[in-house]
Amino acid sequence: MRNQFAESLYKVACADEKIAVIVADISPAGSMGKFREEFPERFINVGVAEQSMIGLCAGMALRGFKSYAYTIAPFTIYRPFEFVRDDVCYQNLPVTLVGMGSGIVYSTLGATHHTLEDVAVMSAIPNMHVLAPCDPLELAEATTFSANFGKPLYLRIGKSGEPNLTEDAIDPFEFGKVRYVERGEDVCLIGYGPALSIAKEVAGRLREDGKSVSLVSAHTLKPLDREGIISILQAHKEVFVVEEHTAIGGLGTKIKEIAWDSQAVCRLETFALKDEFIHCYGTHADMQKAHGLSPEQIYAVVSGG
């Protein structure tokens, strides 16, 4: 996804001279080589100094630039949190904070490099918007969207090698709207970010069992598409939420709030990361399994097996 982001942003920057990227000395920023070569004055590496990365983004945005802060997710938003809140959100500026390698994709690097709670933390700040595309295709559209959004945005993305899930999606990408990737009538699996591939695998197994299954990308987590969620809760007998984020303040929590308010009668189960710092190491899939987020574990619960 980081390569897709670099490619998409480069395209946007070719057409808009007010696009600037500020990175905090991160090696994957190397995939932005083309941007850096062609627009060196709009590509700034502040060094290992995330507070000034955000401050600079805000300062340039105050002057009409559309700035992007780019580094690994925890360093984009946690290290300089108060700068995100005061400089970007309080002043309501067109700054996109790109959280690369979000969730637990940096599986072996330990909890310092994970974001288990970023959706909750970013969603809690007034004026902030949260967007988590599920695959490179959706990210390309999200990036184009971000360039003209004009408001604070947290763009939560993966790392590399994510498969495309939305090639044949039913709905187009639209900011603020849930997106049917596949459409069925009995069961709905809903998620966001690259972890939607887990939901897709579960959906496939349920289909083998003869169920008619929907798969939904809830890429816009703030503002969440309340009407769209109510419609999903009404249209399906069973709804399952899958997310690579803790249950606190994630999509599952938000959907449960809406379910209560709308007096939903469907079965509703949520699958999220445990509220724990992770002390085990292994592949990304190993880590998801340790948190009960493997397709097998989720399928076992939803099918009652």
Binding site: G55, L56, A58, G59, F83
Partner: peptide, 11 residues
């Protein structure tokens, strides 16, 4: 200071 640096650079 970092806000001012961003403004000055943008200018």
């Amino acid at each position: 200071l970092t806000l001012a640096v961003g403004m000055a650079y943008a200018d």
